[in-house]
């Protein structure tokens, strides 16, 4: 049973990967459709990174858009001032964001619940304001143009971003399925129990912040390269709430849940934008419906199917035995 489920997972992953590879050709190389998928990948990375903290670690953060903004501005500033290879620039964006995450974590690890939420919210609100007012570094309200690496065409940049996404998700998956992931979960379940089992909770909580902000910063960097512009209005605090909604709707206690959420919330505007002001209403409605009927998130629909199938099988076996 376990083996079959693993097999199905690999088939599913391969089909998705194959679809993403041929996607630009299926969509006639449309910039719009490619941007739509790129935004899904960027939000996908960020949502999974956020879920490391919230879903696995039980540490609330409602300011993650701030990390996205730091990552995107890091790429813009480094690319503007230093002639570094773009992969190095991207990596530096992740490191800088992780460093900011480390600083935030110093105060955040001492807090929990609502207090932690307020600290992260304050961070999420203040980053765009700093970007707006630190004109000498960020060019203020005007924002900064980001030159796409000369060696990358639009199509190769698309594949680069997709490749990075697979790589980042793979890293995060492995971190969460290592002893680290187990430590995070134990902190979520009971900090006192975790501590009494010899888990250094302060260290692991700091680590959650650093890992999460690192990958979010990298996602911000990919965003900067794809859009070619960063500005102080790019990641307002509403994006932090949207990210939160992605992991709630997708499923907080699952690795794949936030990815489903990111895909869903990225595709909704495509269908609703023609009707003025309807997008946020639809997102709100979906959120309410999911919380009411599938509080564990969309990802549990897969479990529900699995359960039904098992029940059917059990019924068949019992009927066979009966006859």
């Amino acid at each position: 049973m376990q083996l079959k489920s693993q097999k199905l997972k690999y088939i599913f992953n391969s089909v998705v990967l194959l679809f993403i590879i041929v996607y630009p050709f299926l969509m006639n190389m449309s910039g719009y459709w490619m941007t739509l998928l790129v935004m899904m990948t960027i939000y996908g990375i960020t949502a999974v990174a956020l879920n490391i903290m919230i879903g696995y670690g039980g540490q609330i953060s409602i300011g993650h858009a701030g990390f996205l903004m730091i990552g995107s501005y890091s790429v813009a500033i480094i690319a503007d001032r230093f002639e570094l290879p773009f992969v190095i620039t991207l990596l530096l964006a992740g490191i800088i964001t992780a460093f900011v995450g480390l600083i935030i974590s110093f105060s955040a690890v001492r807090l929990k619940g609502h207090f932690l939420a307020v600290v992260t919210l304050g961070f999420g609100i203040s980053v765009p304001v700093i970007a707006l007012n630190w004109t000498s570094l960020t060019n203020g309200y005007s924002g900064m143009l980001v030159t796409r690496p000369a060696i990358l065409s639009e199509l190769s940049l698309y594949y680069f971003i997709v490749g990075c996404t697979v790589l980042f998700l793979w890293f995060m998956y492995n971190i969460l399925h290592s002893s680290f992931g187990r430590a995070f979960i134990s902190i979520r379940e009971s900090e006192i129990a975790a501590q009494s089992s010899g888990i250094n909770t302060t260290f692991y909580k700091t680590l959650m912040f650093v890992i999460s902000s690192f990958f979010t910063g990298m996602a911000g960097g990919l965003y900067a390269y794809w859009i070619g512009f960063v500005g102080p209005t790019d990641f307002p605090v509403t994006i932090s709430f949207l990210l939160l909604a992605m992991i709630v709707v997708g499923g907080m206690h699952s690795f794949y849940g936030p990815i489903f959420g990111a895909v869903l919330f990225s595709i909704i505007p495509h269908f609703t934008d023609e009707f003025m002001g309807i997008t946020n209403i639809v997102i709100g409605l979906i959120l309410v419906i999911i919380i009411l009927f599938r509080p564990e998130g969309l990802v549990t629909i897969v479990d529900w199917f699995k359960m039904n199938k098992t029940m059917e099988k059990a019924d068949t076996i019992s009927k066979e035995r009966g006859s």
């Binding site: 639009e154 199509l155 190769s156 698309y158 594949y159 990075c164």
Partner: peptide
Amino acid sequence: MIIFLTACGGES
């Protein structure tokens, strides 16, 4: 895949 497709992306 990244290396192959990035190279294939060419000058489009």
